[in-house]
Design a protein around this nucleic acid. Structure first.
Lengths: 224, 224
DNA sequence: CTAGTAGTACTTGTCTACAAGTTCATTAAA
DNA sequence: TTTAATGAACTTGTAGACAAGTACTACTAG
């Protein structure tokens, strides 16, 4: 497990959650592997309690399976679960961008513009990790514009299933297109064009296609 | 706080979660009131650990607010949060019933029929509580038909905001209509009529209108 | 009488110990 | 050799103690 330092102001629970989530998405913690509360606590320099709470959070969206008195395991990749995550994202993203088209405060529009500028900057630097972060933040801004922050939070937990298979896919020229998609979405929001925005979101999400057969061929032992 | 007995097979955490949720929805635990981990643990005959976990779950959907070293409080009724819950329910219910219209296994259709029969039975007995349970179960069956069980679970957590204001509203002749709505939905699913089903869901949800001004007038101190 | 301070009684955050169950390897008996 | 029993080493579930911070009360000094 890759453990980077605890950020200042981060509670033990949040720290454990962040590290576990990162390691599950990157499959540094392999699907099916045991995540012991004690072992994790030792690695993070914490006690069991906050680690346990973080594991429980992850278990709530079925990305970790806890069997009483036996152990907590990173869930195998379950195409049904990936589909649930994809579905949730699509349905909510479309519904929320429609709201954002109706009204988005100028300061959010500015934040979106700044975000896209940064995306283009890191695109020129080929910094995929930064683009990933900015991508998430851009979509979160749409939820903020629609006053749906809690829903955004719920969605992001479920998205772990999605992000994990995404991290297993070899993607090359995708970043350029997604930055362009974001520009299009911002334009649609400014123009109050719901239909255009909704169509863009659908197209955008289709870029994160999950080629199950390909990944299953490469990592058959990761699948349910 | 009203505490009924722990069900067999129910973990301490689930028990604490269930009791807290019921008391928050019924406003037996009043908005703004303190929910002490120690006090709750004592009342339920548990230790702090499972109670703490339950409180944390509720805090994740902002129905409880925990202030470090100060206390955990039942959230005041926040119209924004009620709206987020209503929005989540509407968007997901519509999307999911569309899927169910495409294909629903016969055993689920049977379960839906049985459920509606029971609703009609309890309607004749004027048993509102049983109808409430069957209502929830009916909608859950739609999610099962669409293979979206986890999403249903996520939704139900958020719905606490919605159910709480619902429990504050005096509703009289609503039950008859909602049972009829359910029959209509089942028919639409059988006929694979997505548009009809979606329209019915929208109409159905409009019956749970939240008359903010009325409730605010009655319980101003419950509001944010 | 007022202002400030110390103390008390709470709160949550974290840690540690113990209870109870599972798994697996080792050992002894058939 | 095979099989069954036993115990050790794990796991999570729960409980309770301590740390640290907040709020309020009562007392003391001016």
């Amino acid at each position: 497990m890759i453990v980077d330092a605890r950020q200042s102001g981060e509670s033990a629970r949040d720290y454990a959650y962040r590290i576990l989530k990162e390691n599950i998405i990157s499959t540094e913690l392999k699907p099916g592997s045991l995540v012991s509360e004690n072992e994790t606590a030792a690695k993070l320099g914490l006690s069991r309690t906050p680690v346990r709470e973080a594991i429980y959070d992850l278990a709530k969206v079925s990305i970790i399976e806890t069997i009483p008195q036996k152990g907590s395991y990173v869930a195998l990749i379950d195409p049904k679960m990936v589909e649930e995550a994809r579905f949730l994202r699509k349905v909510l993203d479309v519904a929320v961008i429609r709201l954002a088209c109706q009204e988005t405060p100028p300061e959010i529009l500015e934040a979106m513009e700044d975000n896209i500028d940064l995306q283009e900057f890191y695109l020129s630097k080929s910094n995929a990790e930064k683009i990933y972060e900015l991508d998430n933040e851009f979509h979160r801004l749409i939820y903020v514009a629609a006053h749906k922050e809690i829903i955004c939070e719920l969605k992001s937990n479920m998205l772990i299933h999605f992000d994990r298979v995404r991290s297993l896919s070899v993607e090359t020229v995708r970043d350029m297109k997604i930055v362009a998609d974001h520009s299009g979405m911002l334009a649609a929001i400014k123009e109050h064009d719901e239909e255009k925005a909704a169509a863009l979101v659908e197209k955008h999400l289709s870029r994160y296609h999950f080629d199950e057969e390909l990944i299953r061929g490469q990592f058959p032992e990761y699948f349910k």
